[in-house]
């Protein structure tokens, strides 16, 4: 592909990616009358900056954000720990029925959460976990197929010599795992952290089904809860939605290379 064409394609594509965000940012700064005006204007007239603060008066966004942060952090930590353990067992330990487990992991990858949500709901109801954060966190502590594959891949790439040296020094399997191998796969750990955090942060289905108390909701559910029945307030909901994007956007800007690396790692195993 000629370079000039490449630039053209990429810049045009990037504009398509980003302009809608800009348009919705402007929508979030319109008054309701301006928002429903025909024909629509691109720029707000006037700029209704108070939309962004009004959202905070209408709903406890701080509480939602804290809930989302707690859930996503614990989910990410749990997934990294458990997936690393399982991936380690698959890559570096003498696990019986290793092949069967790998196949099982592939199979669960094919089982969408939405299909299993009904029995999961019944299970968590029996555990007394409804309207707690546990159904949103505990599954991540039981390792995810994506995490297992990613970690297994990374552990396979670690040279044997480190482990052998440590074993001669009398280190047990846990010590080898935590002290020798984990530090060597830090990039993969970071990748899995940001990926899990991102998917937990944006989840809609599970929090919709499991959380009901107003003080336990997550950000996406809180945003959806602003949609009025009788009143037009989409400009406010747009403001709320964009606000819920901010934290993840900041995380992405900081950790872009881990997002990309994670995606690439997933691609290479194909």
């Amino acid at each position: 592909m000629p370079k000039r064409l490449a630039y053209l394609v990429l810049v045009a594509g990037a504009a398509v990616m980003l302009l809608p965000f800009l348009a919705s940012l402007f929508n979030s700064l319109k008054t309701y009358a301006d928002y429903i005006a025909v024909p629509p204007g691109f720029l707000p007239d006037p700029f209704e900056w108070s939309n962004w603060t009004q959202v905070w008066e209408r709903a406890p966004f701080g509480v939602y954000a804290a809930n989302s942060l707690l859930i996503a952090s614990l989910a990410a930590f749990g997934n990294v720990l458990s997936s690393a353990m399982v991936g380690h067992a698959l890559a570096r330990m003498k696990l019986p029925a290793r092949g069967a487990l790998l196949t099982a992991a592939l199979a669960t990858m094919m089982l969408p959460t939405v299909v299993t949500i009904i029995p999961s709901f019944i299970l968590f109801r029996e555990f007394g976990w409804l309207d707690t954060f546990l159904p949103l966190i505990v599954p991540f502590w039981l390792a995810t197929p994506f995490g297992i594959f990613l970690m297994r891949q990374s552990f396979l790439a670690v040279p044997k010599e480190f482990e052998e040296a440590a074993t001669i020094d009398g280190a047990g399997p846990w010590r080898v795992f935590t002290r020798i191998h984990l530090p060597l796969v830090k990039p993969a750990l970071a990748t899995l952290t940001v990926f899990t955090f991102m998917s937990s942060w944006g989840a809609v289905l599970e929090p919709t089904v499991y959380l009901t108390s107003p003080d336990k909701l997550t950000l996406p559910i809180g945003v959806m809860g602003l949609r009025g029945q009788f009143v037009g307030n989409d400009q406010l909901v747009t403001a709320a939605a964009l606000m819920s994007l901010l934290p993840i956007l900041v995380l992405f800007l900081i950790a872009q290379r881990y997002f990309v690396r994670g995606a690439m790692a997933a691609g290479l195993k194909g």
């Binding site: 108390s213 107003p214 559910i221 959806m224 809860g225 949609r227 009025g228 029945q229």
Partner: peptide, 9 residues
């Protein structure tokens, strides 16, 4: 104890 939300939610 109040539990309120918009209609659909």
């Amino acid at each position: 104890k109040i539990e309120s939300a918009a209609y659909d939610e």
